[in-house]
Design a protein around this nucleic acid. Structure first.
Lengths: 79, 79
DNA sequence: GGCGATTTGTACGTATGTATT
DNA sequence: CAATACATACGTACAAATCGC
């Protein structure tokens, strides 16, 4: 279940595409608990580190993940 | 009532300093209704445009301002 | 309606700081 | 102490919305 790389011509902004695709992958159970590092995701999605961070912020606001400095980003147990 | 430029050695992060100082100036009634442009504020505060944007975001979350693309940023009528 | 000027929005790449392992 | 990972900050470029002429 690989990442769907960001489409620069897509209707949505890159960071929204990232957030939506990560949400899809999380929903599919791809990340049991911990997500790859932000830099690794940037490579996977073919976009900038800062764009990944914008997407992650969206997911935090959606309540899907929790991020801790120096540790990583984790899938939030349901709710 | 000039801006208090960002202090790189301050306890708070630059973007928090910006937000706090703008809140102070808003409270003092310096901006009747419209704030200077983000780029102008960046010059005033001696920091990057993107840092101003982070501070503005904080102020939006605090409910103090409203921002509209192409128009500008406005002081929110109390509530 | 067009055009340019202004202003906010998104995106990039990089550097450095801070926390955890 | 070193490696890893997130956080902040910078500067730049271009896109998109708005406004005035």
């Amino acid at each position: 279940m690989p990442a769907r790389p960001v489409d620069p011509l897509g209707d949505d902004y890159a960071y929204v595409q990232v957030a939506d695709d990560l949400e899809r992958r999380i929903g599919a159970g791809e990340f049991a608990e911990k997500l790859p590092s932000e830099r690794a995701l940037a490579e996977e999605y073919g976009c900038a580190y800062t764009t990944i961070r914008q997407g992650m912020k969206l997911l935090r606001e959606r309540g899907l993940i929790v991020t801790r400095q120096g540790r990583g980003t984790y899938v939030r147990k349901q709710r």
